[in-house]
């Protein structure tokens, strides 16, 4: 086909952005190619591994099976948006490092965003059980860690945030 482009405007990591996107592009393509956000990993590209996950309007989506044109008017957060402008890590990022929840690192951005997303929905005064956390994080595949330290890191942040409230 002859290329078909569309101008879209969205908020990425707190900044209003406008860009021309090819209608055939996935949101992964757009975030990586148009904005250089390489924490958005290209894994399976068919929604099975979770490495490309981003937060869109408060919910975690696999950006590989999300058309870039659908991002028009949306609020998008990638891993780059979690750390402070000076590079200071967020509590979840720090917990992943402290709890050795990272090995090869390919699944890590997706896991951290999913964790951020589910912890942000946690009602005040409540904690998720381990089984609930496992279910909420089950859309991300990891070959290296066996998930144990990832669960530990997310649980640690959940408790720390609850105590801080």
């Amino acid at each position: 086909m002859s290329a078909q482009y569309k101008l879209i405007t969205c908020n990425i990591n707190g900044h209003e952005r406008s860009t021309m996107v090819d209608v055939r592009a996935s949101l992964t393509d757009m975030l990586r190619d148009n904005f250089g956000l390489t924490s958005v990993k290209k894994g399976c590209e068919v929604g099975e591994c979770g490495a490309c996950a981003v937060i869109i309007d408060g919910e975690c989506f696999n950006s590989c099976i999300y058309l870039a044109v659908w991002a028009d008017g949306k609020n998008i957060t990638t891993l780059e948006g979690l750390s402070a402008p000076d590079g200071t890590l967020s509590d979840i990022q720090r917990a992943f490092a402290e709890e050795t929840a990272v090995q090869c690192g390919f699944c890590t951005p997706g896991f951290i965003l999913e964790a951020e997303c589910c912890l942000s929905h946690l009602e005040k005064g409540k904690l998720y059980t381990d089984d609930e956390l496992r279910k909420m994080l089950s859309g991300h595949l990891c070959r290296c860690t066996g998930y144990d330290n990832i669960l530990r890191a997310v649980r640690k942040v959940m408790i720390a945030r609850a105590e801080a409230k």
Binding site: C49, G139, L151
Partner: peptide, 17 residues
Amino acid sequence: GNLLDYKLSTMMDHPHL
């Protein structure tokens, strides 16, 4: 030959290790 049909464990398939 894909991650849906090749049954790599998810976080729900493991107990504490």
